[in-house]
């Protein structure tokens, strides 16, 4: 159930797991998690917009989505040919990092301005539309961009920021 997609979204809702596995489905998820760990996989839980904490209520869990992801990013470091162009990944990284640094929201115009520094305008617009469509970003009626479910599930946001901040430092300390 956890591996199959529903309506283009991976994973399964808590209430669906409850229906199939019974009321103690969270205990089974814990057991599954310990088994998946051996395969370097994990079950992640998110509500519609954000990652759920460990103390979530039963009601929150029922409405949440359960998805299996890789546990450590390093194991897939070599899978760089996942169908994404390097420019698209770079644009996504910049967008996500800027949104996190602005406390979770940022006007689309400002993101476009930063991205247009290196990419053509048509590319910037199509990239942002694509990120919204596939669930990395959410856009409201005031053209503010927020992170969406896929960013919460897939991206270790803290690590992303640390890596960006340390990147310049690494370059500066590198022997010339």
């Amino acid at each position: 159930m956890l591996f199959f997609k529903r309506h283009r979204q991976p994973g399964v809702k808590g209430w669906e797991l409850k229906k199939e596995l019974g009321n103690n489905y969270m205990d089974l998820i814990k057991v599954l998690n310990s088994q998946l760990e051996k395969l370097d996989l994990q079950v992640k839980t998110i509500s519609e917009e954000t990652e759920l904490s460990k103390k979530s209520s039963e009601q929150q869990l029922d409405k949440a989505r359960f998805i299996i992801t890789t546990k450590s990013p390093s194991s897939i470091a070599e899978t760089k040919t996942s169908g994404w162009r390097i420019d698209d990944v770079a644009a996504l990284t910049v967008t996500v990092a800027c949104i996190i640094s602005r406390q979770g929201k940022m006007p689309r115009g400002e993101i476009e301005k930063i991205l247009k520094d290196k990419f053509p305008e048509w590319k910037v617009k199509s990239n942002l539309d694509k990120f919204v469509k596939i669930g990395y970003l959410r856009q409201d009626e005031n053209n503010l961009l927020y992170l969406d479910w896929r960013s919460y599930i897939e991206i270790d946001r803290e690590r992303l920021l640390k890596l960006i901040l340390s990147e310049g430092l690494t370059a500066a300390l590198a022997p010339t």
Binding site: P10, K44, T69, D156, R159
Partner: peptide, 10 residues
């Protein structure tokens, strides 16, 4: 950087 902080869903 993205790949190092990326956990793709299975």
């Amino acid at each position: 950087i993205f790949i190092e902080s990326w956990h793709p869903p299975m």
